[in-house]
Amino acid sequence: MAENIKVAENTVPMLEVKSLSIQFGGLHAVDGLNMKIRKGQLYGLIGPNGAGKTTVFNMLTGVYKPTSGVIMLDGENITGKPAIVINRAGIARTFQNIRLFKNMSVLDNVKAGLHNHTKYTAIEGVLRLPRYFKEEKRTTEKAMELLKVFELDGEAEHLAANLPYGKQRKLEIARALATDPKLLLLDEPAAGMNPNETAELMQTIHFVRDSFDMTILLIEHDMKLVSGICEELTVLNFGQELAQGETSAVLNDPKVITAYLGE
């Protein structure tokens, strides 16, 4: 019996992408991408600038509708669904250019992430019925727990815009985790960080994977981070898959080296 469950876990991937394509006019931004991510895996999506990595993220999260192809999340078809439906199905993301709720407090940013897990209606909120206090207390506690994990609890009342850059990145991850996802997408988490901050970020990502039992797909340019934490990679070039497989093998692939460094 236990073996059967294990087999089932191995056969249904957390994310399965089959011949995913999108066209903007005549431009094939992403063309026939295939990808399989197992539960609990740390998976990297890399490629030179303009390869279509963020476009893949935008299709996975429902910002763009793919022209063709299928996206399966944990066995559920989510192709072309709207962004909020996909978030409820279990995909959360961070952005390449940080998108926080800048004029809200750090705590409120995470509480906004907990929006769909805070269960009271607008009327209950306005009239301050008992459920408001109960749910609001629970939400605040949960948000503070998440902030503590990312060592942001000391700044809970600060405005998000006033946080230093590295902490803004962390807050974005905390907010994404607040939606209780199955799959976390990180879009260039190390962009603009110095080597110390990057090293700390690697620890954070590992920690998130282990303690939240999370599957993580990340886009990154920092090769040290990629080779340090990703278990498998897909390399995109001009919208097409260039290589796929275990990190060390892919990074030593002559095709990949050519794509990055030129002939």
Binding site: A83, N87, A92, R99, F101, A112, H115, A176
Partner: peptide
């Protein structure tokens, strides 16, 4: 109110957290 302010501050991020 939090949802409204989240939409004001960042429309796309608000959608991405399921608002």
């Amino acid at each position: 109110g939090r949802a409204c302010m989240a939409i004001r501050d960042n429309y796309i991020a608000a959608q991405s957290v399921g608002i």
